[in-house]
Design a protein around this nucleic acid. Sequence first.
DNA 1: GCCGTTTTCGGCCCGACTGTTTTCAGTCG
Length: 573
Amino acid sequence: MKNAAIAKVFHDIADLIELKGENTFKIRAYQKAARAIEHSPREIEQMVKDGSDLKDIPGVGEAIAKKTVELVTTGGLHYYDELRAEFPEGISDLLDIPGVGPKIAVRLGSELGVQSVDDLEAAVLDGRVATMPRLGEKVAENILRQIQAMRTKERRIPIGEALPVIEEIMAELRGCPALKNLTTAGSLRRFRETVGDIDIMGTTDDRESIIDTFVSLPEVKEVLAKGGTKASVLVIGDLQIDLRLVDHDSFGSLLQYFTGSKQHNIVLRERGHRQKLKLSEYGITELQTGVLEKFTTEEGFYERLGLQFIPPELREGQWEVERAERNAIPRLIEVGDLKGDLHVHTDWSDGHDTIEAMALAARAKGYQYIAITEHSAGRGVARGLNEERLRNQIAEIKRLNEQTDGFRILTGIEVDIRADGSLDLPDELLAELDIVIAAVHSAMNQPQEKMTERVLRAIRNLHVDVLAHPTCRLLGEREPIMLDIEAIFSAAAETDTALEINAMPNRLDLKDIHAYRARELGVRLVISTDAHSISHLDFIRFGIGVARRGWCEARHILNTRPLEEVEAFLRRG
DNA sequence: GCCGTTTTCGGCCCGACTGTTTTCAGTCG
């Protein structure tokens, strides 16, 4: 059972006991444990098999650990079944409607016999909801609006789609001389792989003019709200952007608050509580004196709490606060640490630009090297290279290298891992290349055992240096292949095969928690763009975001190393 | 149900908004 499935059970339990009216803190305990399991870099199922102590997971104690073991070993949970039996099937779906909480949901069920969202819609339309005591016209109206909004609600948007739009808008706002600070907040700033609504925050002496500029930007399709300090707009692509203009003297605590995550803020406030400090978006209040201290910067806010600054990417309420206490937050990798890109395509296969153009663009970014890694012939749709064309390309690259100093084009291939785990090109040819990247591109529906064996066989091939986009997921499009990821990590560590963090914004594969776990196990990582054109080389920042969320430092990433070290790695074993 | 520099019991983040009420319950982020 996957972590996501386990987490869903505990989220459901939280909903059900909330409907039951149980202790708020018990509800929160289940929610917290569910989130921790969701974000766990380790497979819970594997931990149970290994006999690891689940109580090491923050928020998981005796009771939830026991339930988790039952769930993983038997596939079911008695406690969960009993709870579900107490309520009609669809009643907890009502909780997904903004404005409907447990109290109202239960009353709708008991007083009107509502058992589903559809039932509720009917009850609003025929006027029954509006006549309930302590509810009314406006509540009913709001419920109806929310139900309709839910039906048309768009998915969360991949960060790769959202970020360029936001940056364009922010660049335009920065043209206003009255604007002092401007930054993103929320999950976008934390670099989560998908984002919902987007918050941007700024400070200014002239709020009115900034708000006016914001709502009349050319990208704005619809103005949802416009007030004295805040405006919400819908831009092209149905992205909702909220601009908040806040007081300069508490900008630090406000930015901290709106960056979240919610769980990070809870952990921080709990800790503050023990220090007799009350934390809020307005600053830090000493409980004894009642004096509120304001902060213009986030750095000052964390410092006042006796904490090292915590980069936004780490603020998920897991271990970061405890590590900041011990001054153990590392210097995370940055774009500027990279010395090359080890996975790009050119017009020799399905890319758009020439080898030379790609190399020049990479060099212009300050890189020392680039690896040309076309698809192999098995990948018919991508005009993959057969043996002859690959040999021609090797010769071409050799010629280009002779013409240049201080930059190196590495010969390579992104070779297909066939359904049986064999590779698409003979070992003798692979041996001639500087770098061999292996990847799954076909037969993606194999069962876990077969798929894992298949990928392990490729990893164990002596010529394979990197496993590309290991889980093959496409955000919002294709689920990851079934893989025993821990087994892959172990084999990668053992054979010193690097795993790729593919920076394509719709891939981000490995993802953050996988990068975390792989790093923890001593697996060598690379961050590559898989660029199919010059402009794709800029995708590298998305890979950096994933790596930072995985607590990676420059030393964990192979392509932060100078050319000689990378070559030494490629010649290993 | 979890957890510990007020520890094995007794706490548990904080502020704001909305609607329906006259002081607050419910919900949200």
